[in-house]
Design a protein around this nucleic acid. Structure first.
Length: 244
DNA sequence: TAGGCCATCTGGTCCT
DNA sequence: AGGACCAGATGGCCTA
């Protein structure tokens, strides 16, 4: 029940143990001494009864703290879950994304996927629309893999094909990586939707691990924070985090 | 050593 | 009343 024991806290030196010490150093307990059996001694009178206001306050405070700790652990678990599905390097050699970076990257990634999906829909509409218009002319039926693909469609195809590899080395769906995963008909530009694998030092140097980590193409959605017209709220958040 | 990131505590506010 | 949520404060750890 209590998530304290099953915490996903990545810190080995969690200050959990410091909780009680700070708590007991608070003014609440400066007026009370603790006996060997844990009961409070106040004015020479042993009080085991829980209705002691100080004990009640202590219990309440510990309970509230525990709940808050659990809440934050749950939040961090959710954040880890988000990190797991983000297209960034998850290997042990790569530093964990910070919370703010995770959120910003996730937002931009969703925007990019949404835009790609819309583009894909348009392309599908074009392909089937033209095929209906020329319905009377006998045409050889092509398998989906044989259809001439728009570069974006090709890159999406490649992206899907390389999904497994991406899970092991995300952000590495670059041109070389894509070349191994792309469809037979894909031209060399098929990786143009792909991210640009950042050299690790630059990734670590960038405060948000976002800017400058991607290959940029005009008019194309990019998860890079520099390419996204952030709304006011997000922009202010970004500025806040940068100026922090 | 400064700065970034984080976990925790704590008090306030809102909701059920 | 109790719990969830939030934000400020604090202190620890890590890296450049």
């Amino acid at each position: 029940m209590d998530s304290d024991t099953g915490s996903t806290c990545s810190r080995s030196s969690s200050p959990d143990l410091a909780v009680d010490s700070s708590f007991f150093s608070s003014k609440i307990f400066q007026q009370a001494e603790r006996t060997s059996n844990g009961s409070l001694v106040s004015g020479g009178k042993i009080q085991n009864r829980p209705e002691n206001p100080k004990e009640d306050l202590q219990e309440l405070r510990l309970k509230v703290n525990s709940r808050e700790r659990k809440r934050m652990h749950d939040l961090n678990q959710a954040m880890d879950g988000l990190r797991e599905v983000m297209p960034y390097a998850q290997g042990p050699s790569v530093r964990k994304l910070s919370k703010i970076s995770t959120l910003l990257l996730a937002r931009n990634y969703i925007l990019m996927l949404s835009s790609s999906l819309e583009e894909m829909k348009k392309l599908v509409g074009e392909v089937y629309g033209s095929s209906v218009a020329q319905n009377h002319a006998p045409r050889p039926v092509l398998a989906p893999s044989q259809l001439p693909l728009h570069p974006l469609a090709q890159s999406l195809h490649s992206l899907a094909s390389g999904a497994v590899a991406m899970s092991s080395t995300p952000l590495q769906h670059t041109s070389t990586h894509m070349a191994t995963a792309q469809a037979p008909h894909s031209p060399p530009s098929a990786g143009y939707l792909g991210f640009h694998a950042p050299p690790i030092p630059s990734l670590l140097k960038d405060p948000l691990h976002l800017a400058g980590s991607y290959r940029h193409f005009p008019g194309m959605p990019c998860p890079c924070s520099l390419c996204q017209p952030l709304p006011v709220s997000t922009a202010s958040l970004h500025a806040l985090s940068m100026s922090k």
